[in-house]
Amino acid sequence: MNGRLLDGAVQFAISNENKVDTNLRMAIMKAYDREPNYQVFGPVKSRGRSAGIIIRNGYIVAQWGDVNRVDMTFSVTKSYLSTIAGLGLDEHLISSLDDKVKDYVQDDKFYGVHNEKISWRHLLTQSSDWSGCLFDFCDWADRPPKTGGIDEWKNRPLIEPGSQFEYNDVRVNLLAYSLLQVWRKPLPVVLKDKIMDPIQASTTWRWYGYENSWVNIDGVMTQSVSGGGHFGGGLFINTLDQARFGLLFLRKGKWKSKQLISPQWVEEVHKGSAPNKSYGLMWWTNRALELPGLSPDLYYADGFGGNYIVVDNEHDLVVAVRWLDSSKLGELMKLITNAIQEKK
């Protein structure tokens, strides 16, 4: 790689730090204050400063900031949650993503003509239009439309599952709840045993739910974790561990000599989906070239405040970046890929 250009990319990331308040409790209260009865029920931690790691051909070629600092990662958590579903397929706890969730989770969450149609794929692609409330949060209260009354939104006609993409953290938490019912053990334990320990991640990461998201699993009260930090909680993790997770996906689910998650799953997560080809199984894709000038095979985890894990198969590249200006990801990745020098 061209050292001068690589240094320029690092300086670009540092000088384009996200302006989100370092007091993240204040930041999310401000971001979601339109939502009716909005509350923070999970842990929140003030953020650090710009940090990142660039891995090329399996080597760390650049890093900046405090890469050991544990920070909230918000919706990057969704890509870890997606991985729990992939592991469930690998271990035959789930037969098919197109199976109806009601056949696995037989409680009132999936009762009714609409909700009983919902499949695992619908939850993973955020196209279920599930209707209901979970842990005192209702689907209609998450990112309500800016026009029209709440009552109108609450009573709207429901959309056929699988036909329309709609970003909704209550429904993501429903996926976490449903996977907990399948695994019958805390999802952080599954992640630790199956992924984080084998990739030699640190012991500093934590995955939280809410103070009211405890459920009875075979007589043991177990916390159902959240898929992000919208209401607090989610994954708190350092940049090095994020980079290791990204490298696992760049290597098609294989770490050293051990296949931790099937290559078929890794390929599936970034295909894009019928309702939104820029969104796969809780990973964002570049299939629609929304990041122009970059590979269509590039995909990434994306969290509030400018948290990213970028996997670029074409260039054998992983970038884990914290607190980047959210409008600058494409420009940063172009600077990094421009620094790559082909072998002569």
Rank of each mutant, 00 (worst) to 15 (best):
M1C: 06
N2C: 15
D7Y: 01
D7N: 04
G8E: 00
E17T: 07
M26G: 06
M29I: 03
A31E: 13
P36F: 14
P36I: 15
Y38P: 09
G42N: 06
K45D: 06
R47T: 11
S50R: 02
G52C: 02
R56L: 07
V61M: 03
A62F: 11
Q63A: 03
D66M: 07
V67S: 02
R69D: 00
R69I: 00
T73D: 06
T73Q: 09
S79D: 07
L81P: 12
A85I: 10
L93R: 14
S96G: 03
S96Y: 08
D103L: 09
Q106F: 05
N115G: 03
R121Q: 15
S131F: 09
W140N: 04
D142F: 11
P144R: 10
P144C: 13
T147S: 15
I150F: 15
K154I: 14
N155L: 07
R156P: 09
P157W: 02
L158E: 04
P161R: 15
V170L: 13
V172S: 15
L179Y: 10
L180R: 01
L180W: 01
Q181P: 05
R184Q: 15
P186C: 02
V190I: 13
T204W: 01
Y210R: 12
S213F: 15
I217T: 13
M221T: 10
M221Q: 13
G228E: 09
G228Q: 06
G228W: 05
G232P: 11
D241L: 07
D241C: 07
A243M: 04
F245M: 00
F245T: 00
L248P: 01
L248H: 02
L248I: 00
L250D: 15
R251H: 02
R251M: 00
R251F: 00
K252E: 15
K252I: 02
K252M: 13
G253T: 01
W255A: 00
Q259C: 11
V269K: 01
H270W: 04
S273C: 10
A274F: 14
W284N: 15
L291F: 15
G293H: 10
S295C: 10
Y300N: 00
F304H: 11
G305R: 01
G306S: 06
V310A: 02
V311W: 00
N313M: 00
H315N: 14
W323Q: 13
L324Q: 04
D325I: 05
K328M: 06
L329Q: 04
L329P: 02
E331F: 09
K334Q: 14
I336G: 04
I336P: 06
A339N: 13
Q341K: 08
